[in-house]
Design a protein around this nucleic acid. Structure first.
Length: 417
RNA sequence: CGGGGUGUAGCGCAGCUUGGUAGCGCGGCUGGUUUGGGACCAGUAGGUCGUAGGUUCGAAUCCUAUCACCCCGACCA
């Protein structure tokens, strides 16, 4: 990619409404723009980060035998009335009517739709277990959207669902997802912790949350010295205390703030009972399927990763989700033919080595370009000016270090690995 | 929904108390000199002051209503 064809939208000042670092940096670095409260457009740089995260999630879910599907966000009220959640879910469910006065909602989660899908096509234990996931926009009419994409009214979530003949099978699968999630968050290079959680609105009997520990997190966690623990709701019940302070006093657990980026649930038969999702077992009995569901907040991960990794110059992307692996910053390339052709050669070389590269071919000051790419947070910077063009070298600088050094062109590829 | 706050150029803000020609910085555009860490000079465009009503000879400024946005809380992934 060249900046001439891949617009970047960095800006110096940031709207005063952006309070937390990740929100400010996402606006400054040109990842997002606000449409209205809790709703954001994703610009090229931001969308690439989302796509990197999605790729990792897809790979790890495919690895555990989970197949991708896509379901409609507009969902008929009948399904939600069948599950009982049309009334239970409350005002957070964004509802509307079509021209025929039929009631619909925009899906905040997809248990109803997928249960309906599966009950129509699955009728035998031989078809189970079955694992399906989708990546799509979810809608929640939040009381108070805040912190940019951290708590948005429209956001991208991965939701997976599993279907089983027995509780045992669900239990096994739940553990498989749990370890797949650990692989995913490790590859995303997030500093996370797993806690016991309340299953809330989704329902079921066992659940775990995956949190990125961050000051700006909205959730209260209680952790032991091995970082195992639970969220506040569970702790209140478990220790029969009603305040954070009294629980800390009673248990000696450490209080941390967390950003919830993943949540897995054992739903059991909650939905299959209400929605009559039945299969026939080996001995010809008709039973309700056992279900699990597994979510990851993709757009929230973007913000959480920034909260966790930045400095005064901007974002520092983990290599695995950086929008580009490296940036070629050319100096004076629009005027100096040698510089332009040398940077084009380096660009082709890296492209042929399957590297994701952005080539900054703008007519702009060196300082401007450096500031932009430090703000955007690309891990590797390759500087090409008159000297490098003459010597057939490049000057390398890592995002996290202040020193630059000149290296031969042949050394670049290994430098980036 | 309760409490607090803000709406003036793309962004950051001043002007409002005490009504009388709508300003500053950054950014944009044109021309030129620059380009190895957010350059400089000259010129230029851009605002029905959130919206509607009222008071007044006259409203960004005073009054009323309304909308949007932000923060704290309740709630929630």
């Amino acid at each position: 990619m060249k900046v001439s064809n891949f617009p970047i939208f960095t800006q110096k000042d940031v709207p005063s409404e952006a309070e937390i670092t990740s929100h400010q940096l996402m606006i400054k670095s040109g990842m997002i723009r606000k449409l209205s409260s809790g709703q954001y457009s994703w610009l090229p740089i931001g969308l690439r980060v989302i796509q990197k995260i999605e790729k990792i999630i897809r790979e790890e879910l495919n690895n555990i035998g989970c197949a991708e599907i896509l379901m409609p966000s507009v969902q008929p009220a009948e399904l939600w009335k069948e599950s009982g959640r049309w009334d239970e879910y409350g005002p957070e469910l964004l509802r509307f009517k079509d021209r025929h006065e039929r009631e619909f909602c925009l899906g905040p989660t997809f248990e109803e739709v997928i249960t309906d899908l599966i009950r129509k096509d699955v009728s035998s234990y031989k078809q189970l277990p079955m694992n399906l996931f989708q990546i799509s926009s979810k809608f929640r009419d939040e009381i108070r959207p805040r912190f940019g994409v951290m708590r948005a009214r429209e956001f991208i979530m991965k939701d997976a669902y599993s279907f089983h003949e027995t509780q045992d099978c669900l239990d096994n699968t739940y553990e498989i997802y749990k370890s797949a999630y650990q692989k995913i968050f490790k590859r995303l290079m997030l500093d996370y912790t797993i806690v016991d959680a309340d299953s809330g609105n989704i329902g079921g009997n066992e659940s775990n949350e995956f949190h990125v520990i961050a000051e700006t997190g909205e959730d209260d966690l209680l952790l032991d010295n091995k970082c195992n623990g639970m969220n506040l709701e569970i702790a209140k019940i478990k220790y029969s205390e009603d305040s954070l302070e009294s629980i800390i006093k009673k248990t000696g657990l450490t209080h941390k703030k967390g950003i919830e980026v993943g949540h897995i649930f054992k739903l059991g038969q909650k939905y299959s009972e209400k929605m009559k999702a039945k299969i026939t077992t080996k001995d010809s009995k008709s039973i309700n399927m056992f279900m699990g569901c597994y979510g990851i907040g993709i757009t929230r991960i973007v913000a959480a990763a920034i909260e966790q990794s930045h400095d005064s110059n901007g974002i520092i992307w983990p290599k695995s989700i950086s929008p580009f692996e490296a940036v070629i910053i050319e100096i004076d390339g629009h005027k100096n033919k040698e510089v332009r052709s040398h940077s084009n050669e380096v660009y082709s070389l890296l492209k042929n080595s399957k590297k994701n590269i952005i080539h900054d071919d703008r007519n702009a000051n060196f300082g401007n370009k450096m500031k932009d790419w430090e703000l955007i947070g690309i891990p590797h910077m390759i500087i090409i000016g008159n000297n490098e063009a003459k010597n057939k070298t490049i000057t390398y600088r890592a995002r996290t270090e202040n020193t630059k050094f000149e290296i031969k062109v042949e050394e670049i590829v290994s430098k980036l690995n």
